[in-house]
């Protein structure tokens, strides 16, 4: 059994309490939600926080998924399985269901949280790509109040976010717009593994034209988990094989994968294009009302 280094443990009873504890305990304190990335890192002693603040008591307060005005609002403590089981999520954004089906395994999904996944900021985090493609925003709270940041601005690098030491991510807001279709495609070495590469596609169709698009890329070193070049290729175009191919090529060209044991960079770059094309085809079909 791997055992973590000594750490203090606090249990937050509200969001305000959690923020207060973060301020009190300083930058070496960490929030723990589902703990399915953080606790293994602690056991391997890759993470050695001085204090752990358990926010699982906030599951009721921050665990809901609902529609608020024209936004889908996902609480940061919603579990992966909540997202996967939500009919309203599936109705508006099937990309999230596609992604959740290939995130880890049921045991992890039962416990791991949406907020935890985004704040862990693993370069291979599927939801970072999927929510970036959907132009979602992150709601971040500190003692000074609440601010919102585009999910595609949330990550500043591997395992780094703009969330401050004494702040916490509380919600994700996904704008609901007409004509949306979305899909997710992932290649992994084995079920439950991190992606070798993955792509999220979202299109908003208006009168047969792609009025807006989001292309998220995961594990291939895409800046902010997106391909703005591919999005630019798509915007204002009628969907066609050529447009899809051009967007895929832009996605592949713009990413910056690294070679590791999951595969050489050239393979990952190929996947970025291939999976972008596949996700786009399904997203467009879904926007057009076809089952895909």
């Amino acid at each position: 059994m791997q055992v973590p280094a000594p750490f203090g443990y606090e249990r937050a009873t509200s969001v305000d309490h959690a923020i207060q504890l973060l301020e009190q305990l300083g930058p070496e304190a960490r929030l723990v939600a589902g703990g399915h990335s953080f606790i293994p890192m602690m056991k391997l002693r890759l993470a050695q926080p001085e204090h752990v603040i358990d926010i699982n008591p906030l599951a009721a307060e921050l665990g809901t998924i609902s529609i608020d005005g024209s936004d889908l609002v996902i609480g940061a403590m919603a579990r992966h399985n909540d997202l996967l089981g939500s009919a309203v999520v599936g109705e508006h954004f099937p990309v999230l269901h596609d992604a959740e089906r290939v995130i880890a395994d049921p045991v992890v999904r039962n416990r791991g949280t949406i907020g935890g996944s985004l704040c862990q900021a693993d370069p291979a985090e599927d939801l970072s790509a999927a929510l970036s493609a959907l132009h979602a925003t992150a709601v971040i709270r500190g003692s000074g109040g609440t601010r919102t940041v585009a999910v595609r601005e949330l990550h500043t690098g591997p395992y780094e976010t703009v969330v401050g030491d004494a702040e916490m991510l509380t919600h994700i807001r996904v704008p609901i717009r007409n004509g949306c279709g979305s899909a997710y495609e992932k290649v992994e070495r084995r079920v439950g593994d991190w992606a070798i590469a993955a792509a999220a596609a979202a299109v908003w169709m208006d009168g047969g034209i792609i009025s807006d698009a989001g292309i998220g890329l995961c594990a291939v070193g895409a800046e902010h988990f997106v391909s703005t070049d591919a999005e630019a290729v798509l915007r204002g175009q009628a969907p066609s094989d050529d447009v899809i191919a051009a967007a895929a090529a832009a996605a592949a060209a713009g990413c910056n994968p690294t070679t590791d044991q999951r595969g050489p960079a050239e393979y990952k770059r190929h996947l970025a294009g291939e999976l972008t094309a596949r996700a786009l085809r399904r997203a467009i079909a879904r926007a057009q009302g076809a089952a895909a």
Binding site: V187, R189, I196, R262, G263, P264, Y267, H270
Partner: peptide, 8 residues
């Protein structure tokens, strides 16, 4: 024969 090895 991982996906990468097959593709290569």
């Amino acid at each position: 024969l991982t996906p990468a090895q097959v593709w290569m």
